[in-house]
Structures are given as structure tokens and as C-alpha cells.
Write a protein that binds this DNA or RNA. Structure first.
Length: 288
DNA sequence: GAAACGTGGGG
DNA sequence: TCCCCAAGTTT
């Protein structure tokens, strides 16, 4: 079906790949795992400085495991979705306790670690250990939707058909390089908005382009709400805890969000998620 | 399967 | 300005 995509994309990647630190030969499996979690729903440019700091501070799972979880949250900064910091900390402890301090190489074992789903397990197994897996992230799904299926966007949720297609395209040799090449094409050329078909190595055989780039016809793609939501409130509250260096009086939290009902709900949520810790006396801090 | 979960930059 | 969306996972 999609014969002929491989070589042009691999050649394009050889000439256009970004020099990202977690792609360098000296990057450890731990460094790659950390990058993959940080990159979930987060642009590369924002991840870069935080990743550098984490690698300098915690070069091994053991180093991070020795810290309280709150330190991971503190040094997560404003990357977003801070439960990922907790997940990474829990990964470090599990790897230290159950895997001799070495990131497991098998997909199934990676998949059992907190915050590691289908994509991340496949990515780490591929990029850190050279295993052959279908690496289905939003970039790959979009490239395949366009180039093969002829549609502007992939379905809302990953389908079995997409997985079958991705698996059918895995080359016998150097599957990880193919995976990262397709991802990179999606990230730099075959973007969600304003795809640069003039720069695309497979434009001549892209089903979507050959069909005249028809507009997306699937179900409405729901936007993410944020302003005024619990999510925004949680972010405000956590920022206060992160930027403090000891227990924070409740009043300091009350000061950053007006609606008391929503504020209490958000704070309870942070505590329930393990991102905040109530102390006797009515103060709060990052989890120790 | 839908909804929750942060944040900031580009079009 | 406002909207979209960025290497997803969990409940």
C-alpha cells in the first residue's frame, strides 16, 4: 500500500533532523525516559531547559529516587501537567527498587511504570534499546492519516486500523530510525496547521495532497478549556507551593483565587493527587 | 469513550 | 485577541 514512503522519509530525516540532546548516542535510557515523559503534550523548546536541569541534578534513577517527590514537582517548574513529575519520581523509585536501578528494556515492563502508556513504552523501548515497535504519537498518526489515508487529521482516538497500518510499515532494519523520522516529519513539515507540503519528501505520493487537501470532515475536535477552570486554579495554587521554600499558610493560597468553592475543590484535588501536602496547623507544602 | 489534567507560543 | 495545539495517560 504505502510502498515508497520509507526511503524518502529516511533521507529527509538524515538531512533535516534536529540535534536534540536525548537523541545523541551518549543519552542513557534514563535520559530518554525522562525526555519522553516531559514531551507528553509539551513542545520541545519548553522541555529542553528543564530536561538539562534534571539530567544535571538527577543523572540516574537512583539519584531522583533519593529525593522526596516534592523536589521533582519543584524542579518541574512550569512545564505543565505536574503529575508527570510525580510519575517520573515514582518511576525512579520503582526502577531502583525493582529493576536494579536500570530502566527496563521490555515494552511490557515499561508499560507497567506509572505514567507510561502505549506511546511512551514503545518510544523508550525503541529509542533507548533499539526494539521494534509501532511508535504512534500525534505526529505519526497525522502523517499516516494524510500520506496514506488521504485525510487531514487522524481519528480522535487511536484505532486498531491505525495501529495495523503503523505496524505494517515498520521496516525490518532499524525500526527506531524509521519511527523517529516519521515523528520528525510530522513535527517539522506535516504539521497540524499550515503543513509545508513544498518541503515534504513524500508530497508527490501523499494521498491527502493528491486529493487536493480536502478539509477535515470528522467529528468536531473539542477544544481544551482552561480559563476559569479547576485546572487553572490548580496551576495557581501549585505555583505558590513550588515557589515557596517551606510550609505555606492557607492565606497565601486563598490570595491567588477568588472563588472559595472552586479553590477548596482544587486544593483537595491537589492533595488527593499527591501534589500537595496538608500539615498540622493549616499550612501546605509540596509532598515530602 | 469522554473528561480531566497545565502552560505558553504561533497563526 | 482568540483559538489551536503540543513526543499522552488515567479514570
Amino acid at each position: 500500500m504505502a510502498i515508497g514512503l520509507h526511503q524518502p522519509i529516511l533521507d529527509w530525516y538524515a538531512a533535516n533532523a534536529r540535534d536534540l540532546p536525548w537523541r545523541r548516542p551518549e543519552a542513557s535510557p534514563w535520559a530518554i525516559l525522562v525526555s519522553e515523559i516531559m514531551l507528553q503534550q509539551t513542545p520541545v523548546v519548553r522541555v529542553l531547559p528543564i530536561w538539562e536541569e534534571w539530567m544535571a541534578r538527577w543523572p540516574t534513577p537512583e539519584a531522583l529516587a533519593a529525593e522526596p517527590p516534592g523536589e521533582a514537582v519543584r524542579h518541574w517548574g512550569r512545564l505543565g501537567y505536574p503529575r508527570r513529575a510525580l510519575n517520573l519520581h515514582a518511576c525512579a523509585r520503582a526502577i531502583t527498587a525493582d529493576h536494579g536501578g536500570e530502566v527496563p528494556s521490555a515494552y511490557e515492563e515499561l508499560r507497567r511504570l506509572p505514567g507510561i502508556g502505549d506511546y511512551t513504552a514503545a518510544a523508550v523501548a525503541s529509542f533507548a534499546f533499539g526494539r521494534s515497535h509501532a511508535v504512534l504519537d500525534t505526529n505519526v498518526r497525522r502523517v499516516l492519516a494524510r500520506a496514506v489515508r488521504g485525510e487531514e487529521y487522524p481519528p480522535t482516538a487511536t484505532t486498531a486500523a491505525e495501529r495495523r497500518l503503523a505496524e505494517s510499515l515498520i521496516p525490518a532494519v532499524d525500526a527506531p530510525r524509521w519511527a523517529v523520522a516519521v515523528m520528525e516529519l510530522g513535527a517539522l513539515v506535516c504539521t497540524a496547521r499550515g503543513p509545508r507540503c513544498a518541503d515534504c519528501p513524500v508530497a508527490a505520493r501523499c494521498a491527502w495532497r493528491l486529493a487536493g487537501r480536502p478539509a477535515y470532515e470528522g467529528p468536531e475536535r473539542r477544544g481544551q478549556t482552561y480559563a476559569g477552570t479547576d485546572r487553572q486554579c490548580r496551576g495557581r495554587l501549585l505555583a505558590v507551593l513550588r515557589d515557596a521554600h517551606g510550609p505555606v499558610p492557607k492565606a497565601a493560597l486563598d490570595a491567588v483565587w477568588d472563588d472559595p468553592v472552586q479553590r477548596e475543590r482544587a486544593l483537595d484535588g491537589l492533595v488527593a493527587d499527591g501534589l500537595a501536602e496538608p500539615l498540622p496547623g493549616g499550612t501546605y507544602r509540596l509532598p515530602a
